[in-house]
Amino acid sequence: MEIELLAAGFGGQGVMVIGQFMAAASVKENKYALFYPSYGPAMRGGTANCTVVSSDEPIGSPIFTAHQNVMALNLPSFDKFESTVQPNGKLFINSSLIDKKSDRKDIECIYVPSNEMAIEAGSNLAANIVMLGVFLKLTQFAKKETMEQVIQEKFGRKGEKIVSINLKALDAGYNFV
């Protein structure tokens, strides 16, 4: 099975973290993974997106015209990528920052107030992990415990507090749907 995601937002929202954590959890479960980042010309503050694939089979093309899943963390990303979701695909929308609704009837839209949920978990910065939790629950690209391990490893050097906020954020997202 191949699960593919395009995640987009502005620089600093942790879009790349979503992609890298998804790839890392997949590799931990001996799956194939591919992460393809795409940055705007500016180092900070610009738009950023990444394509991630998790698969039981070797991964072919890293280029997709239509996406199984799209995650929009801000309005420009929603406007740009809403139309690229495959029919029957999923669109994950950060409703904290995007007040639009999708008109598309052929896709499943999941509205997540991720910034509010992240603040509840302890930090606004963990909104990306909330989104990741929702995505993980609905696609099951890896086990939740595996993602928890990834969070512990990647955030470990930032201290216990950061780890626990992000684990809470993952939980909140996972239990949201």
Binding site: V27, Y32, A33, L34, F35, P37, P62
Partner: peptide, 9 residues
């Protein structure tokens, strides 16, 4: 540039 930027195991 693509093979330089992507991550894989």
């Amino acid at each position: 540039g693509l093979l330089g930027q992507i991550m894989e195991a």
